[in-house]
Every structure is written in C-alpha cells, then in structure tokens.
C-alpha cells in the first residue's frame, strides 16, 4: 500500500446513489496530498506541480466524487464548495459537523457516508 494515497469507503444513501450510477458503496482511492484549491488532478496535469498542496480533506473528496463518479445533475449534490443543504455527512459514523466539516483531514480506511434527506415523506 502506497503511503501517498488513501483508500476510503464511500457510501451513498437517501436517493443520492441515483446520481452515482446507482452504486451505493464504493471504494475510492485518492492522493494523500492534493491541490490547495481542491481541484481534481487529471492525467495531463499530474506532471505540473500545483502552487500549493494540502492534505486531502473532505472538501477535496467531494470535488473528486463530483468530477470522477457523478453521472447526473451536479447541482443536486454540491453547491459551491460544499454539499447541497439537506445532505447529511457522516465520517466514521460521526456527524461531520463535529469533525470540522469540509476541513476534516482524511485518514486511510475512513468511512464516509452521504445521505440525502430531501426525499422525505
């Protein structure tokens, strides 16, 4: 296992999986260090060093998921740099508001759950 990547378990619920090819659970591997502006590195840009790096955080993961795995309607997933209001985020079974929300620095084997509460009854 390379120490400059992180492997995470990401789960979608509450209808959010419909935007991600209906796959509820997936394993995601991301770099441990990412561009400071959370932009998602593409093969062409990998050789170009970005001006600043940060440790991969949840904000980056969101951008990554949107870029690489979202198949439909990005506006239902994210608004600006964070999740759309109405989406509950759990990091290792804990409310992300307790973990610093988007600034939480990810660790290897973390489990992130994203549940939409908007299709309620």
């Amino acid at each position: 296992m390379s120490s400059d990547t992180l492997t995470l378990k990401v789960e979608f619920g509450g209808g959010l999986e419909l935007l991600f090819s209906n796959k509820r659970i997936r394993d995601v591997t991301i770099p441990a260090f990412v561009p400071g502006d959370s932009s998602v590195p593409s093969p062409e840009s990998e050789s170009i060093q970005p001006t600043s790096l940060k440790q991969a955080d949840v904000t980056f993961l969101l951008h990554y998921l949107r870029e690489k795995h979202l198949t439909d309607r990005p506006e239902l997933f994210m608004e600006k740099d964070t999740v759309r209001p109405g989406i509950l985020v759990l990091i290792n079974d804990t409310d992300w508001e307790l973990e610093g929300e988007g600034d939480y620095v990810l660790k290897d084997k973390d489990e992130i759950v994203l549940i939409s509460t908007l299709h309620g009854g």
Partner: peptide, 21 residues
C-alpha cells in the same frame, strides 16, 4: 428534524426506498 430522521434510520437499520422525484 430531517437530519435526525436520516441519522435514526441509518443507526436503526430502517430501509428507506425513497420517493420518486
């Protein structure tokens, strides 16, 4: 609140099939 409902559903293993848009 909706948030509490979502957390409760998850932690008590309640399957939610969802409403169609």
């Amino acid at each position: 609140t909706m948030k509490e409902c979502a957390a409760y559903a998850r932690w008590n293993n309640i399957t939610v099939v969802g409403k169609q848009r």
